[in-house]
Amino acid sequence: MSNDPREKPNPKEKTGNGVGRILTAILIFQLGIGAMLVLGDVQLGRLSLPGLGPNAPRLTEPVRPGDQRRTYRPERDRPPTQPARDPGQLPERLMLTQIEGATYRLEGAVAEGDGARVKKLLSEATPTPETLVLQSPGGSVQDALELGRHLRDREIGTQMLAGEFCLSACPYILVGAATRDIDDSAQVGMHQHYFGQSTILPASFAVEDIQAGQGEVMVYLNDMGIDPMVMTHALATPPDEIYVLLPEQLREYGFVTQED
């Protein structure tokens, strides 16, 4: 480029520089707006980030009336009560093992495909299962619903022992049983779920999936004789937390089979 001050500037260069500055300004403006929206969501409790937003106690802390939401990471968090037995590391999918006679233990995470797989295990078990001792951190909602309906059709009961837990999608298996016996020190917890939503799809499709899934769950609970109002606690609790139902709530919402 010449340093001659008499040389006229190229108008194309000025135009290009001007466009570049405008695009840069627009980008900075958009980033600023995005940052303010994210900060607003965090402050309003709509978005949880490490070290930001609501700070619920961990699940290891005792639960009291009105203080029932706990942080929940299945691989880390366990209830504080002493269990009837130490389960160790729970299986990554449901496992069926015989305890005695027609009483079996169903334990582990609810993996995709476990509905059909466990139904097959139950049909092949000898003697025919009458009661399942249940313990699970949850998992696939659709598989839990499928398995719960199968338990009701087969008139199989469920039982929860002292200090053991049934969280996330697990309660849908629990309530599907024909009879339900839950020790007062066992923990049953619920929260919001994902229903196959894809981050690739537009947000409107994800919302439709969630609403349809929640509707299916409420119909299921009603069919099982459970008060669907229990979902008010689940819907108000984000997926990284769990709402633990108190023994009196389990009876109020119909989780515990009442003796005639």
Rank of each mutant, 00 (worst) to 15 (best):
S2M: 12
D4N: 15
R6S: 14
E7S: 12
N10Y: 05
K14L: 15
G16Y: 09
G16I: 13
G16M: 13
V19R: 11
V19N: 07
G20V: 11
I22R: 13
I22Y: 06
T24Q: 11
A25G: 15
Q30R: 03
Q30G: 09
G32T: 13
A35L: 15
A35W: 07
D41K: 10
Q43E: 13
L44C: 04
L44N: 13
L44P: 00
L49D: 10
L49C: 11
P50E: 10
P50M: 10
P50Q: 12
G51T: 10
L52E: 02
L52N: 01
N55G: 10
N55P: 00
A56H: 07
P57C: 10
P57S: 12
E61H: 08
P62D: 08
P65F: 05
P65W: 07
Q68L: 11
R69F: 02
T71Y: 03
E75A: 15
R76V: 14
P79K: 09
T81K: 13
Q82W: 02
P87H: 13
L90P: 00
E92Q: 15
R93I: 01
L94E: 03
L96E: 01
E100H: 13
E100A: 14
A102D: 09
D114Y: 03
G115N: 02
R117M: 06
R117Q: 04
R117T: 04
R117N: 03
K119G: 14
K120N: 07
L121F: 04
L121M: 10
L122H: 03
S123P: 00
S123W: 00
A125G: 01
T126R: 14
T128R: 15
L132M: 05
S136D: 06
G138E: 05
G138P: 00
G138F: 02
S140H: 02
A144M: 05
L145W: 01
L147T: 01
G148N: 08
H150N: 07
G157W: 02
Q159H: 13
M160H: 05
A162H: 10
G163E: 05
G163D: 05
C170G: 02
L174F: 05
V175S: 06
G176V: 07
G176L: 07
A177D: 04
A178L: 04
T179S: 13
D181E: 12
I182T: 06
D183R: 10
D183C: 04
D183Y: 04
D183N: 14
G189C: 06
G189K: 09
H191V: 07
H191N: 14
H193C: 05
Y194L: 11
Y194Q: 12
G196F: 10
L201V: 06
P202S: 05
S204R: 12
A206D: 05
A206R: 13
E208N: 07
D209Y: 06
Q211S: 05
Q211C: 02
Q214S: 05
G215W: 06
E216C: 03
V217P: 00
D227A: 14
D227W: 07
A234C: 10
P238W: 08
P238K: 13
D240R: 15
E241D: 15
Y243R: 12
L246M: 15
R251K: 15
Y253A: 10
F255N: 02
